[in-house]
Design a protein around this nucleic acid. Structure first.
Lengths: 193, 193
DNA sequence: ATGCTAATATACCGGTAGGTATAATAGGAG
DNA sequence: CTCCTATTATACCTACCGGTATATTAGCAT
């Protein structure tokens, strides 16, 4: 692991545990066994470090979803594949996803929020696109695609957070196929009721 | 509005917008048109200010829920009353509840998280208690009361966040009885599927 | 008027935040 | 061996952080 990677790793650890604003550059480089100029050499600023961290991790998430989710005429099945890909990523990258959620939930004028916002928006556009592609199967959605996307992802996030709170920090978050299908079913029920 | 209240008000505004760690005492008292010693006179420390703010607001939330929710043999109805009380509080205190969620989602070693954690735990104990009281109606829950409480409140939080993201900052968040009953229905469906 | 207390301001403290000027080091190319 | 570039460290900057010592003000009881 090179020094750039070391910095990203300890930054994630600390941001996840204490929050972006509560962690100083000093603490990050100390934890990585390096000094400040090394960090500034690679990332330019604290914000640059955050952007790099989020950007690289988000790309992985997006690839996971893209590989899984192409609408193929069976919408519940598509949602299942998305949910499965999502939980795999979120479980294997617990710190990253938790940190992204934390940033997203902070005030809109917070620097960290501004850094994730475009990524989350991009992600939601992707999910919304799935609902749009399924318009023929789902019938007229009256422009509620975005609302459905928010509802669906919200259900996934909520489930992730619930499982996380019930799983010790070092243990893996487990969710089997049956449970994921249950979530999709519950969501589809919500749409039609 | 006395000075103590002025400080609490501008603290909430700023914490909500920028996050607890990103706001300095200086900014808070400036916004309130006061000076630092006044804040330290009333609250003793930044953490003391946060505790007072959260404590006072949480008490209001708890009172809302307590007035609404006494299990009376009709569990879905009880959940409806809780949900209704919750949404009324959260909508009328948008900043407060958003800020509480934000703190709760940040890292566990964050000072703000430590400040809300006992309040949220207490709240969850209350909701869990409802599920326990309904054991005769719901059947053997196999110790899943806590999980149900997390799931139910998660659904409420998620709905609140979704509505909030779709409602302009200055407008009121509206949710009619029919929608709330829909959410409860969706949750009950989730339990039995 | 006088003293007492609650409440507020001025001016300051040490510490640390993000960020940088400068120099040293190391490894490969010629 | 020497130069060049990439990388890293020492030591420092200014600004602001949370917090406080001290003085002043205002109202009230005596």
């Amino acid at each position: 692991m090179d020094n750039r990677e070391k910095i990203l790793t300890s930054a994630l650890d600390l941001f996840y545990a204490r929050g972006y604003d509560a962690v100083g550059i000093r603490q990050i480089v100390d934890a990585a066994g390096l000094t400040k100029p090394t960090m500034y050499y690679y990332f330019g600023s604290k914000r640059g470090l955050l952007d790099a961290l989020l950007g690289e991790q988000y790309e992985k998430l997006e690839q996971c979803i893209d590989r899984a989710a192409v609408y193929n005429g069976d919408f519940p099945e598509t949602l299942f594949l998305v949910a499965e890909a999502f939980f795999r990523f979120a479980s294997e990258n617990r710190k990253v996803y938790s940190f992204m959620l934390a940033l997203f939930y902070t005030g809109q004028e917070n620097e960290g929020h501004k850094a994730v916002e475009p990524l989350i928006s991009r992600y939601y556009r992707k999910i919304t696109g799935l609902f749009e592609a399924a318009a023929s199967e789902l019938g007229n959605m009256n422009g509620r695609q975005k609302q459905f996307a928010l509802g669906f992802q919200g259900l996934l996030d909520m489930t992730f957070l619930r499982l996380r709170s019930q799983t010790p920090e070092q243990e893996a978050i487990v969710l089997d196929e049956k449970q994921i299908r249950g979530i999709v079913k519950q969501f589809m029920y919500g749409i039609y009721s």
